[in-house]
Nucleic acid binder design. Structure first.
Lengths: 241, 241
DNA sequence: CCGAACAGGGAACTCAGTTCCCTGCCGGGA
DNA sequence: TCCCGGCAGGGAACTGAGTTCCCTGTTCGG
């Protein structure tokens, strides 16, 4: 259940140790912690893990990837979560729940997450890599929000801003939890942070939507605008649907 | 052609910019555009610029830095702008103005900015580098907002979220402008985008209410539309102005 | 006129990441 | 049983970014 393709043999006498991927992550972190990230070469890692150098790059496209071994899966989980059919009342609520998936992944391995946090905090290259990972999460959220909007320029702007706000709030809570060495309650912290975003951007879905039809037209007009302009705006707004 | 003109000119007292730096940027972009970023080696660049390889890394810490030759200066400008003493009535307004500094830098060289945009869009390594640059801008804004707050947890959260929102809105407008090949009005686009953020988070209205100009909002909605959809449409309609 | 400071050049090195090719292992057929 | 094709892993050698060390010429102050 923990791996996808092939390799489903019962443990032979020779294959007692965990899959090579886990062995590489273990060896890498052992060296990173006792010696530092940049002071550890890939050759050191594969020597400790007892495998060939070529095998390292079979499992991890780059040295940085071994520090974030589970983000690829988490990103897939998030896109699956956002793609699945569900009657969503508030898209902002939905993306907040998607962000909670990421926090849950961190919370699954507190000690590992805290060690990695200390590492990324002091190694600029790892921080840059983490940013690119976070960016992909943010893009997934923004794309989802865009799909749920009319597609007007103002809506794509709103989608980008909401996605950025959700990610910022999530990261704020996550870092606060990591700085506490994983002792505080991560779920509570992220609930509070995301609650702020939902109060700002979300809409209280108190009353259940009665029908599927969601035609809404809004006309904003300055007082001096002539009536024909107002009519024109209403007509073009209707034409847009 | 391979000899940079005026290479041995006596440096003008006011000209702090070394000519070799510009020659390297020029040679680099010439090759990047005709051959691609990853297909161009640093040796190619220094050969075209007619300088030694060692000199490249004297001016640019890495190959990626030559693509963003002015961000370091712009970041310094921004921090200086945020540090300078001024009676600030609305900190959100202030960080929005700080973000406008970045847009102005892009708008100074439209063709250069558009070329770079096309490069960063297709080269993952450059995108990652740009993210780390943007992150530093965002941190500068967030730090400023934190300084202007009580320091309570909720305030640091708000600072992070507002900074992220400002950056997202700025980037939304910037990308829209870059996609138009620099033909549209960059200032107008960023004003509209940042106006949305200011209306959401700011204490003062973005547009200095024109005398006697009261806005009239008309909402037409079919019965089944949930309230959050109506609110969303109203917000996006306001942001459209 | 001398020497320190400094910009630039260049060879050689480290290490990440890639390419090419080899080996051993396994399962499925004829 | 033998052969064959696929495949995980290994290893050598290569490319290219970034660094280290040291050399050269110019400038400028004393």
């Amino acid at each position: 259940m923990n791996e996808a393709p092939g390799r489903r043999e019962p443990a032979d006498a020779t294959t007692v140790r965990p899959p090579m991927r886990d062995a590489l992550v273990g060896a890498a972190f052992q060296l990173f912690l006792e010696r530092g990230y940049e002071e550890t070469t890939v050759d050191d890692i594969v020597a400790l893990a007892g495998v060939g150098r070529r095998s390292f790059f079979r499992y991890f496209p780059s040295k940085e990837d071994v520090v974030f071994p589970d983000h690829e899966r988490c990103l897939a989980d998030m896109t699956a979560f956002l793609d699945e059919e569900a009657d969503v009342q508030d898209p902002v609520q939905r993306v907040c729940d998607a962000a909670r998936l990421v926090l849950r992944m961190y919370a699954e391995n507190p000690t590992f997450s805290v060690q990695r946090y200390r590492l990324t905090k002091k190694v600029p290259g790892l921080r840059a890599y983490e940013l690119s990972v976070v960016w992909r999460y943010e893009r997934a959220l923004a794309e989802y929000l865009r799909r749920r909007s009319t597609g007007a320029r103002a809506d794509t702007l709103r989608a980008d801003v909401v996605a950025a706000a959700v990610v910022a709030a999530h990261n704020n809570a996550l870092r606060s939890w990591l700085r506490s060495d994983g002792t505080k309650d991560a779920e509570a912290a992220v609930d509070q942070a995301l609650g702020y975003v939902q109060n700002t951007f979300g809409s209280a879905p108190a009353e259940p939507a009665r029908a599927g039809a969601e035609d809404v037209v809004v006309v904003v007009s300055r007082r001096g605008a002539p009536m024909w302009r107002v009519v024109q705006e209403i007509e073009s707004a209707f034409a847009r649907n």
